[in-house]
Design a protein around this nucleic acid. Structure first.
Length: 541
RNA sequence: GCGCCUGUAGCUCAGUGGAUAGAGCACUAGUCUUCGGAACUAGGUGUCGGGGGUUCGAAUCCCUCCAGGCGCGCCA
Protein backbone atom coordinates (compact mmCIF):
# COMPACT_ATOMS: atom_id res chain seq x y z
CA UNK A 1 0.00 0.00 0.00
CA UNK A 2 2.67 2.48 -1.00
CA UNK A 3 0.33 4.95 -2.64
CA UNK A 4 -1.95 4.76 0.34
CA UNK A 5 1.00 5.45 2.61
CA UNK A 6 1.86 8.60 0.66
CA UNK A 7 -1.74 9.77 0.74
CA UNK A 8 -1.87 9.24 4.50
CA UNK A 9 1.29 11.23 5.12
CA UNK A 10 0.14 14.10 2.94
CA UNK A 11 -3.27 14.16 4.60
CA UNK A 12 -1.67 14.43 8.01
CA UNK A 13 0.53 17.27 6.85
CA UNK A 14 -2.41 19.03 5.22
CA UNK A 15 -4.31 18.92 8.47
CA UNK A 16 -1.33 20.32 10.31
CA UNK A 17 -1.29 23.21 7.88
CA UNK A 18 -5.04 23.63 8.10
CA UNK A 19 -5.50 22.97 4.41
CA UNK A 20 -8.17 20.69 3.06
CA UNK A 21 -8.54 18.88 -0.20
CA UNK A 22 -11.27 16.51 -1.29
CA UNK A 23 -9.01 13.81 -2.59
CA UNK A 24 -5.32 13.28 -3.04
CA UNK A 25 -4.42 11.02 -5.88
CA UNK A 26 -1.07 9.35 -6.25
CA UNK A 27 -0.22 7.65 -9.52
CA UNK A 28 2.54 5.53 -10.92
CA UNK A 29 4.57 7.80 -13.12
CA UNK A 30 7.55 7.88 -15.39
CA UNK A 31 8.71 11.13 -13.83
CA UNK A 32 9.45 9.39 -10.60
CA UNK A 33 8.08 6.08 -9.53
CA UNK A 34 5.04 7.77 -8.03
CA UNK A 35 3.71 11.25 -8.44
CA UNK A 36 0.99 13.51 -7.17
CA UNK A 37 -0.37 16.83 -8.41
CA UNK A 38 -2.33 17.82 -5.35
CA UNK A 39 -0.52 21.18 -4.90
CA UNK A 40 -2.11 22.26 -8.18
CA UNK A 41 -5.52 21.45 -6.83
CA UNK A 42 -5.35 23.38 -3.59
CA UNK A 43 -7.61 26.36 -3.74
CA UNK A 44 -6.87 27.71 -0.30
CA UNK A 45 -3.28 28.77 0.16
CA UNK A 46 -1.96 29.95 3.46
CA UNK A 47 1.54 31.33 3.63
CA UNK A 48 2.56 29.52 0.49
CA UNK A 49 1.50 31.45 -2.55
CA UNK A 50 1.86 29.21 -5.56
CA UNK A 51 1.48 25.51 -6.25
CA UNK A 52 5.21 25.06 -6.78
CA UNK A 53 5.92 26.64 -3.40
CA UNK A 54 3.42 24.33 -1.76
CA UNK A 55 5.07 21.41 -3.52
CA UNK A 56 8.47 22.49 -2.26
CA UNK A 57 7.18 22.92 1.25
CA UNK A 58 5.77 19.38 1.29
CA UNK A 59 8.92 17.96 -0.22
CA UNK A 60 10.94 19.31 2.69
CA UNK A 61 8.64 17.46 5.08
CA UNK A 62 8.33 14.20 3.13
CA UNK A 63 11.98 13.60 2.36
CA UNK A 64 12.70 11.85 5.63
CA UNK A 65 10.93 8.63 4.62
CA UNK A 66 13.50 5.90 3.90
CA UNK A 67 11.18 4.22 1.42
CA UNK A 68 12.04 6.95 -1.07
CA UNK A 69 15.49 7.74 -2.33
CA UNK A 70 14.36 11.08 -3.66
CA UNK A 71 11.35 13.36 -3.39
CA UNK A 72 11.29 16.35 -5.69
CA UNK A 73 9.03 19.24 -6.60
CA UNK A 74 8.74 20.12 -10.27
CA UNK A 75 6.95 22.88 -12.15
CA UNK A 76 4.16 23.75 -12.16
CA UNK A 77 3.41 21.88 -8.92
CA UNK A 78 4.03 18.17 -9.08
CA UNK A 79 5.71 16.09 -6.41
CA UNK A 80 7.64 13.07 -7.66
CA UNK A 81 8.76 10.17 -5.53
CA UNK A 82 11.63 7.88 -6.40
CA UNK A 83 11.42 4.54 -4.71
CA UNK A 84 14.49 3.27 -2.87
CA UNK A 85 15.29 0.06 -4.73
CA UNK A 86 16.76 -1.74 -1.76
CA UNK A 87 13.91 -0.80 0.56
CA UNK A 88 11.41 -1.90 -2.07
CA UNK A 89 13.20 -5.23 -2.51
CA UNK A 90 13.11 -5.78 1.24
CA UNK A 91 9.32 -5.80 1.03
CA UNK A 92 9.46 -9.05 -0.92
CA UNK A 93 10.08 -10.87 2.37
CA UNK A 94 6.79 -9.69 3.73
CA UNK A 95 5.00 -10.77 0.56
CA UNK A 96 6.47 -14.25 0.79
CA UNK A 97 5.41 -14.43 4.41
CA UNK A 98 1.84 -13.36 3.59
CA UNK A 99 1.58 -15.70 0.63
CA UNK A 100 -2.07 -16.11 -0.33
CA UNK A 101 -2.98 -13.22 1.95
CA UNK A 102 -0.83 -10.81 -0.03
CA UNK A 103 -3.09 -8.05 -1.27
CA UNK A 104 -5.47 -8.45 1.60
CA UNK A 105 -6.16 -5.25 3.50
CA UNK A 106 -8.73 -4.36 6.10
CA UNK A 107 -10.24 -0.93 5.44
CA UNK A 108 -13.65 -2.58 5.28
CA UNK A 109 -13.28 -4.86 8.25
CA UNK A 110 -16.58 -5.64 9.99
CA UNK A 111 -18.53 -4.30 7.01
CA UNK A 112 -21.11 -6.28 5.11
CA UNK A 113 -21.67 -6.29 1.37
CA UNK A 114 -24.36 -7.98 -0.68
CA UNK A 115 -23.61 -8.63 -4.33
CA UNK A 116 -26.42 -9.68 -6.64
CA UNK A 117 -25.56 -11.01 -10.07
CA UNK A 118 -26.66 -13.24 -12.97
CA UNK A 119 -30.31 -13.31 -11.82
CA UNK A 120 -31.51 -14.86 -15.08
CA UNK A 121 -35.12 -15.87 -15.62
CA UNK A 122 -35.86 -19.58 -15.44
CA UNK A 123 -37.32 -19.65 -18.93
CA UNK A 124 -34.38 -21.17 -20.74
CA UNK A 125 -30.68 -21.92 -20.59
CA UNK A 126 -28.31 -19.21 -19.39
CA UNK A 127 -27.23 -17.14 -22.37
CA UNK A 128 -23.89 -15.53 -22.97
CA UNK A 129 -25.29 -12.04 -22.34
CA UNK A 130 -26.52 -12.83 -18.84
CA UNK A 131 -23.43 -14.90 -18.22
CA UNK A 132 -21.19 -11.84 -18.48
CA UNK A 133 -22.60 -10.71 -15.16
CA UNK A 134 -21.30 -13.93 -13.59
CA UNK A 135 -17.54 -13.38 -13.71
CA UNK A 136 -17.99 -9.64 -13.10
CA UNK A 137 -20.09 -10.15 -9.98
CA UNK A 138 -18.03 -13.02 -8.66
CA UNK A 139 -14.72 -11.20 -9.08
CA UNK A 140 -16.03 -7.98 -7.59
CA UNK A 141 -17.25 -10.00 -4.63
CA UNK A 142 -13.77 -11.53 -4.28
CA UNK A 143 -12.12 -8.12 -4.43
CA UNK A 144 -14.46 -6.81 -1.75
CA UNK A 145 -13.59 -9.76 0.46
CA UNK A 146 -9.93 -8.97 -0.06
CA UNK A 147 -10.45 -5.52 1.47
CA UNK A 148 -12.19 -6.88 4.53
CA UNK A 149 -15.85 -7.01 3.54
CA UNK A 150 -17.97 -9.92 4.57
CA UNK A 151 -19.70 -10.65 1.27
CA UNK A 152 -22.92 -12.42 0.43
CA UNK A 153 -23.20 -13.54 -3.20
CA UNK A 154 -26.81 -13.75 -4.22
CA UNK A 155 -28.94 -14.74 -7.16
CA UNK A 156 -32.46 -13.39 -7.61
CA UNK A 157 -34.64 -15.96 -9.25
CA UNK A 158 -37.45 -14.28 -11.20
CA UNK A 159 -39.65 -17.33 -10.92
CA UNK A 160 -42.99 -15.61 -11.51
CA UNK A 161 -44.50 -13.07 -13.82
CA UNK A 162 -45.68 -12.71 -17.36
CA UNK A 163 -42.54 -14.16 -18.98
CA UNK A 164 -42.75 -17.23 -16.79
CA UNK A 165 -46.45 -17.62 -17.60
CA UNK A 166 -45.88 -17.35 -21.32
CA UNK A 167 -43.11 -19.86 -21.02
CA UNK A 168 -45.32 -22.23 -19.04
CA UNK A 169 -48.05 -21.99 -21.67
CA UNK A 170 -45.57 -22.77 -24.45
CA UNK A 171 -44.35 -25.77 -22.55
CA UNK A 172 -47.81 -27.10 -21.82
CA UNK A 173 -48.82 -26.66 -25.45
CA UNK A 174 -45.77 -28.62 -26.49
CA UNK A 175 -46.47 -31.40 -24.01
CA UNK A 176 -50.00 -31.64 -25.27
CA UNK A 177 -48.76 -31.92 -28.83
CA UNK A 178 -46.42 -34.67 -27.79
CA UNK A 179 -49.34 -36.49 -26.22
CA UNK A 180 -51.31 -36.31 -29.41
CA UNK A 181 -53.25 -33.08 -29.37
CA UNK A 182 -53.15 -31.07 -32.54
CA UNK A 183 -52.15 -27.46 -32.01
CA UNK A 184 -53.68 -25.19 -34.52
CA UNK A 185 -51.95 -21.88 -34.14
CA UNK A 186 -48.37 -21.37 -33.09
CA UNK A 187 -48.14 -17.93 -31.58
CA UNK A 188 -45.13 -15.80 -32.26
CA UNK A 189 -44.43 -15.12 -28.63
CA UNK A 190 -43.92 -18.74 -27.71
CA UNK A 191 -40.62 -20.10 -26.56
CA UNK A 192 -38.67 -22.38 -28.86
CA UNK A 193 -35.54 -24.45 -29.04
CA UNK A 194 -34.33 -27.95 -28.42
CA UNK A 195 -34.10 -27.41 -24.70
CA UNK A 196 -37.88 -27.03 -24.62
CA UNK A 197 -38.27 -30.45 -26.24
CA UNK A 198 -35.87 -31.98 -23.71
CA UNK A 199 -37.71 -30.34 -20.87
CA UNK A 200 -41.09 -31.53 -22.12
CA UNK A 201 -39.85 -35.13 -22.37
CA UNK A 202 -38.34 -34.96 -18.91
CA UNK A 203 -41.53 -33.64 -17.37
CA UNK A 204 -43.77 -36.13 -19.13
CA UNK A 205 -41.66 -38.89 -17.66
CA UNK A 206 -41.32 -37.46 -14.18
CA UNK A 207 -45.00 -36.64 -13.72
CA UNK A 208 -46.17 -39.71 -15.65
CA UNK A 209 -48.27 -37.66 -18.01
CA UNK A 210 -50.26 -39.90 -20.30
CA UNK A 211 -53.19 -37.88 -21.55
CA UNK A 212 -54.29 -34.36 -22.32
CA UNK A 213 -56.47 -34.51 -19.20
CA UNK A 214 -53.57 -35.23 -16.88
CA UNK A 215 -51.75 -32.28 -18.38
CA UNK A 216 -54.78 -30.11 -17.75
CA UNK A 217 -55.01 -31.23 -14.12
CA UNK A 218 -51.36 -30.90 -13.40
CA UNK A 219 -50.63 -27.65 -15.21
CA UNK A 220 -49.47 -25.83 -12.06
CA UNK A 221 -47.27 -28.73 -11.12
CA UNK A 222 -45.76 -28.78 -14.61
CA UNK A 223 -44.94 -25.07 -14.49
CA UNK A 224 -43.38 -25.38 -11.06
CA UNK A 225 -41.25 -28.34 -12.09
CA UNK A 226 -40.14 -26.55 -15.26
CA UNK A 227 -39.08 -23.50 -13.27
CA UNK A 228 -37.14 -25.57 -10.76
CA UNK A 229 -35.47 -27.66 -13.47
CA UNK A 230 -34.30 -24.63 -15.45
CA UNK A 231 -33.16 -22.78 -12.34
CA UNK A 232 -31.06 -25.76 -11.35
CA UNK A 233 -29.57 -25.87 -14.81
CA UNK A 234 -28.57 -22.21 -14.60
CA UNK A 235 -26.97 -22.77 -11.21
CA UNK A 236 -25.04 -25.71 -12.66
CA UNK A 237 -23.83 -23.47 -15.51
CA UNK A 238 -22.71 -20.92 -12.93
CA UNK A 239 -20.78 -23.61 -11.09
CA UNK A 240 -19.06 -24.44 -14.36
CA UNK A 241 -17.99 -20.78 -14.47
CA UNK A 242 -16.56 -21.23 -10.97
CA UNK A 243 -19.40 -19.41 -9.25
CA UNK A 244 -21.41 -20.47 -6.26
CA UNK A 245 -24.04 -18.40 -4.54
CA UNK A 246 -24.56 -18.02 -0.81
CA UNK A 247 -28.21 -17.28 -1.26
CA UNK A 248 -30.81 -17.81 -3.95
CA UNK A 249 -33.79 -15.56 -3.46
CA UNK A 250 -37.07 -16.29 -5.21
CA UNK A 251 -39.22 -13.49 -6.46
CA UNK A 252 -42.36 -15.50 -5.71
CA UNK A 253 -41.57 -15.49 -2.00
CA UNK A 254 -41.96 -11.73 -1.76
CA UNK A 255 -45.51 -12.14 -2.94
CA UNK A 256 -46.44 -15.23 -0.96
CA UNK A 257 -45.02 -13.78 2.26
CA UNK A 258 -46.93 -10.53 1.78
CA UNK A 259 -43.73 -8.46 1.76
CA UNK A 260 -44.50 -6.95 -1.64
CA UNK A 261 -47.95 -5.95 -0.50
CA UNK A 262 -46.54 -4.36 2.65
CA UNK A 263 -43.92 -2.34 0.85
CA UNK A 264 -46.47 -1.04 -1.66
CA UNK A 265 -48.69 -0.02 1.26
CA UNK A 266 -45.72 1.77 2.81
CA UNK A 267 -45.09 3.75 -0.36
CA UNK A 268 -48.80 4.53 -0.60
CA UNK A 269 -48.76 5.86 2.95
CA UNK A 270 -45.84 8.13 2.10
CA UNK A 271 -47.93 9.56 -0.73
CA UNK A 272 -45.58 8.29 -3.41
CA UNK A 273 -48.13 6.33 -5.39
CA UNK A 274 -51.11 7.19 -7.46
CA UNK A 275 -53.92 5.25 -9.03
CA UNK A 276 -54.46 5.51 -12.73
CA UNK A 277 -56.35 3.26 -15.13
CA UNK A 278 -57.15 1.00 -12.17
CA UNK A 279 -53.47 0.25 -11.54
CA UNK A 280 -51.18 1.50 -8.75
CA UNK A 281 -48.18 3.51 -9.95
CA UNK A 282 -44.97 4.59 -8.28
CA UNK A 283 -44.89 8.38 -8.53
CA UNK A 284 -41.90 9.88 -6.71
CA UNK A 285 -41.31 13.62 -6.39
CA UNK A 286 -38.29 13.51 -8.60
CA UNK A 287 -37.86 15.73 -11.63
CA UNK A 288 -36.02 13.09 -13.60
CA UNK A 289 -38.57 10.39 -12.90
CA UNK A 290 -41.60 12.57 -13.46
CA UNK A 291 -42.49 11.14 -16.85
CA UNK A 292 -41.27 7.70 -15.97
CA UNK A 293 -43.86 6.57 -13.48
CA UNK A 294 -44.23 2.86 -13.44
CA UNK A 295 -46.72 0.31 -12.36
CA UNK A 296 -46.46 -1.44 -9.00
CA UNK A 297 -49.76 -3.29 -9.00
CA UNK A 298 -51.56 -4.22 -12.18
CA UNK A 299 -55.23 -3.67 -12.80
CA UNK A 300 -55.91 -7.32 -12.00
CA UNK A 301 -54.29 -6.95 -8.58
CA UNK A 302 -51.01 -8.75 -9.35
CA UNK A 303 -47.76 -7.07 -8.36
CA UNK A 304 -45.13 -6.31 -11.00
CA UNK A 305 -41.46 -7.27 -11.05
CA UNK A 306 -40.71 -3.71 -9.99
CA UNK A 307 -42.82 -4.01 -6.83
CA UNK A 308 -41.20 -7.32 -5.93
CA UNK A 309 -37.77 -5.86 -6.54
CA UNK A 310 -38.54 -2.99 -4.17
CA UNK A 311 -39.55 -5.53 -1.54
CA UNK A 312 -36.34 -7.44 -2.22
CA UNK A 313 -34.26 -4.32 -1.78
CA UNK A 314 -36.12 -3.37 1.35
CA UNK A 315 -35.16 -6.78 2.68
CA UNK A 316 -31.55 -6.21 1.58
CA UNK A 317 -31.29 -2.85 3.31
CA UNK A 318 -33.03 -4.07 6.45
CA UNK A 319 -30.14 -6.50 6.90
CA UNK A 320 -28.01 -3.35 7.43
CA UNK A 321 -25.39 -3.85 4.75
CA UNK A 322 -22.68 -1.26 4.16
CA UNK A 323 -22.74 -1.86 0.44
CA UNK A 324 -25.30 -3.28 -2.00
CA UNK A 325 -23.96 -4.11 -5.45
CA UNK A 326 -26.19 -5.17 -8.34
CA UNK A 327 -24.68 -6.41 -11.56
CA UNK A 328 -27.22 -5.91 -14.32
CA UNK A 329 -27.45 -6.12 -18.07
CA UNK A 330 -27.56 -2.71 -19.75
CA UNK A 331 -31.18 -3.25 -20.70
CA UNK A 332 -32.00 -2.57 -17.04
CA UNK A 333 -30.82 1.00 -17.23
CA UNK A 334 -34.35 2.33 -17.13
CA UNK A 335 -35.11 0.25 -14.07
CA UNK A 336 -32.16 1.45 -11.99
CA UNK A 337 -33.16 5.10 -11.33
CA UNK A 338 -36.65 4.01 -10.34
CA UNK A 339 -35.31 1.41 -7.97
CA UNK A 340 -32.85 3.92 -6.55
CA UNK A 341 -35.70 6.39 -5.99
CA UNK A 342 -37.72 3.69 -4.26
CA UNK A 343 -34.80 2.77 -2.00
CA UNK A 344 -34.29 6.40 -1.04
CA UNK A 345 -37.97 7.00 -0.41
CA UNK A 346 -38.09 4.04 1.96
CA UNK A 347 -35.57 5.93 4.06
CA UNK A 348 -32.46 3.94 3.15
CA UNK A 349 -29.11 5.38 2.14
CA UNK A 350 -29.11 5.14 -1.65
CA UNK A 351 -25.40 5.95 -1.67
CA UNK A 352 -24.74 2.44 -0.48
CA UNK A 353 -26.44 1.11 -3.58
CA UNK A 354 -24.04 0.55 -6.46
CA UNK A 355 -25.61 -0.70 -9.68
CA UNK A 356 -23.16 -1.85 -12.31
CA UNK A 357 -24.50 -2.13 -15.82
CA UNK A 358 -22.66 -4.17 -18.37
CA UNK A 359 -23.10 -4.07 -22.14
CA UNK A 360 -23.98 -7.06 -24.22
CA UNK A 361 -21.76 -9.75 -25.63
CA UNK A 362 -21.68 -10.79 -29.24
CA UNK A 363 -20.16 -14.12 -30.12
CA UNK A 364 -17.94 -14.45 -33.17
CA UNK A 365 -16.12 -17.28 -34.80
CA UNK A 366 -13.36 -15.45 -36.61
CA UNK A 367 -15.22 -12.86 -38.64
CA UNK A 368 -18.53 -14.60 -38.58
CA UNK A 369 -21.13 -13.60 -35.98
CA UNK A 370 -22.70 -16.55 -34.17
CA UNK A 371 -26.31 -15.79 -33.36
CA UNK A 372 -28.15 -18.92 -32.50
CA UNK A 373 -27.65 -22.15 -30.72
CA UNK A 374 -29.24 -25.45 -31.50
CA UNK A 375 -30.20 -25.77 -27.92
CA UNK A 376 -31.86 -22.43 -27.26
CA UNK A 377 -33.03 -21.62 -30.75
CA UNK A 378 -32.58 -17.88 -30.70
CA UNK A 379 -29.46 -17.08 -28.71
CA UNK A 380 -26.02 -18.42 -27.84
CA UNK A 381 -25.89 -20.24 -24.52
CA UNK A 382 -23.18 -19.81 -21.90
CA UNK A 383 -22.79 -23.58 -21.74
CA UNK A 384 -21.84 -23.91 -25.40
CA UNK A 385 -19.17 -21.25 -25.14
CA UNK A 386 -17.87 -22.68 -21.87
CA UNK A 387 -17.67 -26.19 -23.28
CA UNK A 388 -15.81 -24.94 -26.29
CA UNK A 389 -13.23 -22.62 -24.71
CA UNK A 390 -13.05 -23.71 -21.07
CA UNK A 391 -13.62 -21.82 -17.85
CA UNK A 392 -10.32 -19.92 -17.76
CA UNK A 393 -10.52 -18.34 -21.21
CA UNK A 394 -14.23 -17.74 -20.71
CA UNK A 395 -13.78 -15.78 -17.50
CA UNK A 396 -10.61 -13.98 -18.46
CA UNK A 397 -11.95 -12.73 -21.79
CA UNK A 398 -15.25 -11.62 -20.29
CA UNK A 399 -13.34 -9.73 -17.59
CA UNK A 400 -10.84 -8.22 -19.99
CA UNK A 401 -13.05 -5.32 -21.15
CA UNK A 402 -14.61 -2.64 -19.03
CA UNK A 403 -18.26 -3.39 -18.23
CA UNK A 404 -19.27 -0.34 -20.24
CA UNK A 405 -17.93 -1.62 -23.50
CA UNK A 406 -19.49 -4.12 -25.81
CA UNK A 407 -17.67 -7.40 -26.17
CA UNK A 408 -17.08 -9.35 -29.32
CA UNK A 409 -16.24 -12.74 -27.90
CA UNK A 410 -14.15 -14.55 -30.49
CA UNK A 411 -14.35 -18.32 -30.08
CA UNK A 412 -11.35 -18.86 -32.31
CA UNK A 413 -9.17 -16.47 -30.35
CA UNK A 414 -10.31 -17.94 -27.04
CA UNK A 415 -9.04 -21.35 -28.11
CA UNK A 416 -5.69 -20.20 -29.44
CA UNK A 417 -2.64 -21.19 -27.45
CA UNK A 418 -0.62 -18.20 -28.49
CA UNK A 419 0.24 -14.80 -27.19
CA UNK A 420 -2.72 -13.12 -28.85
CA UNK A 421 -4.83 -15.02 -26.36
CA UNK A 422 -4.01 -13.14 -23.15
CA UNK A 423 -5.14 -15.85 -20.77
CA UNK A 424 -2.50 -18.26 -22.06
CA UNK A 425 0.15 -15.59 -21.92
CA UNK A 426 -0.51 -15.08 -18.22
CA UNK A 427 -0.87 -18.75 -17.40
CA UNK A 428 2.32 -19.57 -19.25
CA UNK A 429 4.18 -17.06 -17.10
CA UNK A 430 2.87 -18.77 -14.02
CA UNK A 431 3.91 -22.21 -15.26
CA UNK A 432 7.37 -20.85 -15.99
CA UNK A 433 7.65 -19.39 -12.49
CA UNK A 434 6.64 -22.72 -10.99
CA UNK A 435 9.11 -24.54 -13.13
CA UNK A 436 12.04 -22.40 -11.99
CA UNK A 437 11.14 -22.88 -8.35
CA UNK A 438 10.95 -26.63 -8.87
CA UNK A 439 14.27 -26.73 -10.60
CA UNK A 440 16.15 -24.66 -8.03
CA UNK A 441 17.13 -25.70 -4.55
CA UNK A 442 14.58 -24.68 -1.91
CA UNK A 443 14.43 -20.96 -1.32
CA UNK A 444 16.71 -19.99 1.57
CA UNK A 445 15.72 -16.58 2.86
CA UNK A 446 18.82 -16.33 5.06
CA UNK A 447 20.73 -15.83 1.84
CA UNK A 448 18.33 -13.13 0.62
CA UNK A 449 20.05 -9.79 0.13
CA UNK A 450 17.78 -6.99 -1.16
CA UNK A 451 20.84 -5.02 -2.16
CA UNK A 452 21.59 -7.54 -4.91
CA UNK A 453 18.37 -6.92 -6.84
CA UNK A 454 19.65 -3.97 -8.81
CA UNK A 455 18.86 -4.45 -12.49
CA UNK A 456 16.22 -2.38 -14.28
CA UNK A 457 14.17 -5.51 -14.98
CA UNK A 458 14.20 -6.51 -11.32
CA UNK A 459 13.17 -3.06 -10.21
CA UNK A 460 10.27 -2.83 -12.68
CA UNK A 461 9.03 -6.22 -11.60
CA UNK A 462 9.26 -5.35 -7.90
CA UNK A 463 7.36 -2.11 -8.45
CA UNK A 464 4.61 -3.94 -10.30
CA UNK A 465 4.34 -6.49 -7.51
CA UNK A 466 4.06 -3.72 -4.93
CA UNK A 467 1.19 -2.15 -6.87
CA UNK A 468 -1.06 -5.11 -6.21
CA UNK A 469 -2.56 -4.15 -2.82
CA UNK A 470 -3.14 -0.59 -4.02
CA UNK A 471 -4.94 -1.88 -7.09
CA UNK A 472 -7.16 -4.25 -5.12
CA UNK A 473 -8.13 -1.43 -2.81
CA UNK A 474 -8.91 0.88 -5.73
CA UNK A 475 -11.04 -1.79 -7.36
CA UNK A 476 -13.08 -2.18 -4.18
CA UNK A 477 -14.23 1.38 -4.79
CA UNK A 478 -14.23 1.69 -8.57
CA UNK A 479 -15.42 -1.86 -9.42
CA UNK A 480 -13.41 -1.56 -12.66
CA UNK A 481 -12.51 -5.21 -12.48
CA UNK A 482 -11.06 -5.35 -16.00
CA UNK A 483 -8.03 -3.51 -14.66
CA UNK A 484 -7.11 -6.62 -12.74
CA UNK A 485 -6.96 -8.64 -15.96
CA UNK A 486 -4.74 -5.99 -17.51
CA UNK A 487 -2.59 -5.93 -14.39
CA UNK A 488 -1.98 -9.67 -14.56
CA UNK A 489 -0.88 -9.36 -18.18
CA UNK A 490 1.50 -6.58 -17.37
CA UNK A 491 2.93 -8.51 -14.41
CA UNK A 492 3.47 -11.55 -16.65
CA UNK A 493 5.12 -9.35 -19.23
CA UNK A 494 7.58 -7.81 -16.77
CA UNK A 495 8.44 -11.25 -15.50
CA UNK A 496 9.22 -12.47 -19.03
CA UNK A 497 11.48 -9.44 -19.55
CA UNK A 498 13.33 -10.19 -16.32
CA UNK A 499 13.59 -13.87 -17.20
CA UNK A 500 15.23 -13.18 -20.54
CA UNK A 501 17.84 -10.79 -19.18
CA UNK A 502 18.67 -11.99 -15.70
CA UNK A 503 19.54 -15.59 -15.02
CA UNK A 504 18.04 -16.79 -11.76
CA UNK A 505 19.97 -19.95 -10.94
CA UNK A 506 23.72 -19.46 -10.84
CA UNK A 507 26.73 -20.38 -8.74
CA UNK A 508 26.37 -17.20 -6.73
CA UNK A 509 24.24 -18.45 -3.83
CA UNK A 510 23.24 -15.03 -2.48
CA UNK A 511 22.19 -13.73 -5.89
CA UNK A 512 20.38 -16.97 -6.71
CA UNK A 513 18.34 -16.89 -3.53
CA UNK A 514 17.63 -13.18 -3.80
CA UNK A 515 16.29 -13.75 -7.30
CA UNK A 516 14.41 -16.84 -6.19
CA UNK A 517 12.70 -14.67 -3.60
CA UNK A 518 11.67 -12.32 -6.39
CA UNK A 519 10.37 -15.27 -8.41
CA UNK A 520 8.47 -16.53 -5.40
CA UNK A 521 6.89 -13.12 -4.78
CA UNK A 522 5.98 -12.78 -8.46
CA UNK A 523 4.33 -16.17 -8.43
CA UNK A 524 2.35 -15.30 -5.31
CA UNK A 525 1.15 -12.02 -6.80
CA UNK A 526 0.20 -13.57 -10.11
CA UNK A 527 -1.60 -16.40 -8.36
CA UNK A 528 -3.54 -14.01 -6.16
CA UNK A 529 -4.55 -11.87 -9.16
CA UNK A 530 -5.74 -14.89 -11.09
CA UNK A 531 -7.55 -16.19 -8.06
CA UNK A 532 -9.53 -12.95 -7.82
CA UNK A 533 -10.39 -13.33 -11.50
CA UNK A 534 -11.46 -16.91 -10.92
CA UNK A 535 -8.88 -18.20 -13.38
CA UNK A 536 -6.63 -21.12 -12.52
CA UNK A 537 -2.87 -20.74 -12.13
CA UNK A 538 -1.38 -23.95 -13.55
CA UNK A 539 1.95 -25.32 -12.30
CA UNK A 540 2.61 -26.68 -15.77
CA UNK A 541 0.88 -26.58 -19.12
C1' G B 1 -39.26 11.51 -29.76
C1' C B 2 -36.83 10.39 -24.80
C1' G B 3 -32.94 7.74 -22.07
C1' C B 4 -28.29 4.63 -21.30
C1' C B 5 -23.57 2.91 -23.41
C1' U B 6 -19.77 3.32 -27.13
C1' G B 7 -16.49 6.09 -30.87
C1' U B 8 -8.51 6.47 -29.12
C1' A B 9 -2.85 3.39 -34.16
C1' G B 10 -4.61 -1.16 -39.85
C1' C B 11 -7.33 -4.65 -35.91
C1' U B 12 -8.73 -5.69 -30.44
C1' C B 13 -8.62 -2.46 -26.49
C1' A B 14 -6.25 0.39 -21.88
C1' G B 15 -5.98 5.31 -20.27
C1' U B 16 -12.00 9.52 -17.00
C1' G B 17 -8.51 16.59 -14.84
C1' G B 18 -1.92 16.34 -15.18
C1' A B 19 3.69 16.37 -17.68
C1' U B 20 5.93 13.73 -24.43
C1' A B 21 -1.73 9.64 -25.25
C1' G B 22 -0.17 3.70 -24.21
C1' A B 23 -0.38 -1.99 -24.64
C1' G B 24 -1.33 -6.48 -27.38
C1' C B 25 -2.15 -8.38 -32.26
C1' A B 26 -0.85 -7.91 -37.28
C1' C B 27 3.73 -6.50 -40.35
C1' U B 28 9.43 -6.53 -41.00
C1' A B 29 14.22 -8.06 -39.21
C1' G B 30 16.62 -10.73 -35.43
C1' U B 31 17.48 -14.05 -30.61
C1' C B 32 17.70 -21.24 -29.54
C1' U B 33 25.18 -25.64 -26.36
C1' U B 34 21.76 -21.36 -21.26
C1' C B 35 16.48 -21.79 -15.55
C1' G B 36 9.93 -23.95 -20.31
C1' G B 37 10.51 -20.43 -27.70
C1' A B 38 3.01 -20.73 -25.45
C1' A B 39 9.09 -16.52 -24.73
C1' C B 40 12.24 -12.25 -25.85
C1' U B 41 14.80 -7.90 -28.72
C1' A B 42 14.49 -3.93 -32.40
C1' G B 43 11.61 -1.09 -35.98
C1' G B 44 5.85 3.46 -35.97
C1' U B 45 2.13 4.94 -37.20
C1' G B 46 -2.74 8.94 -34.09
C1' U B 47 -7.84 15.35 -37.04
C1' C B 48 -8.26 10.76 -29.20
C1' G B 49 -15.72 10.84 -34.27
C1' G B 50 -16.56 16.67 -35.80
C1' G B 51 -17.27 21.61 -33.71
C1' G B 52 -17.66 24.98 -29.58
C1' G B 53 -16.87 25.96 -24.25
C1' U B 54 -14.91 25.58 -18.95
C1' U B 55 -9.08 26.32 -16.77
C1' C B 56 -2.77 27.02 -15.28
C1' G B 57 -3.79 22.25 -17.90
C1' A B 58 -9.00 18.30 -21.50
C1' A B 59 -8.96 11.80 -24.70
C1' U B 60 -11.07 12.72 -19.70
C1' C B 61 -15.78 17.82 -17.46
C1' C B 62 -20.06 20.90 -20.04
C1' C B 63 -22.95 22.09 -24.71
C1' U B 64 -23.93 20.66 -29.71
C1' C B 65 -23.78 17.69 -34.05
C1' C B 66 -22.52 12.84 -36.53
C1' A B 67 -22.13 7.38 -36.39
C1' G B 68 -23.01 2.44 -34.03
C1' G B 69 -25.31 -0.72 -30.05
C1' C B 70 -29.22 -1.16 -26.44
C1' G B 71 -33.60 0.28 -23.88
C1' C B 72 -38.18 3.09 -23.33
C1' G B 73 -45.05 -2.30 -22.08
C1' C B 74 -50.13 -3.39 -16.47
C1' C B 75 -42.24 -7.51 -19.57
C1' A B 76 -38.39 -9.25 -16.35
Amino acid sequence: MIKNEIVKQISTLLKGENLTLESISVEESSFGDYSTSFPLKLTKFKSYQTPIEVAKFFVSKLQKNTLFSEVTATEPGFINFKLNQKEAAKMLLEIIRQEKYYGKTSPNKNKKARVEFVSANPTGPLHIGNARGGPIGDSIASVLEKTGFQVQREYYNNDIGTQVDIFGDSLIALIKTKLGEKQEIVEEKTYQGEYLEELAEKIIKKLSLTSIETVQNKSEEIKALASVTLSEEIIVDCQAMGISFDEIIKESEFQSSGKTEKVVAKLKKKGLTKEKDSAVWFAPNDAYLKDRESVLVRGDGRATYFADDIAYHEEKFESKPDLVVNILGSNHHGHVPRLQAAIASLGFDANKFKPILYQYVRVRRGNEVVKMSKRAGNYVTAREVLDEVGKDAFRFLLLFNSANSHIDFDLELAKKHKADNPVYYVQYAHARLSSILKKASPLDLDKFDPGLLTTAQEFSLIKKILEFPDLVFELSESFAIHQLAHYSISLAELFHHFYEKDKVISSNQELTHSRLALIRATKITLENSLSLLGVSAPESM
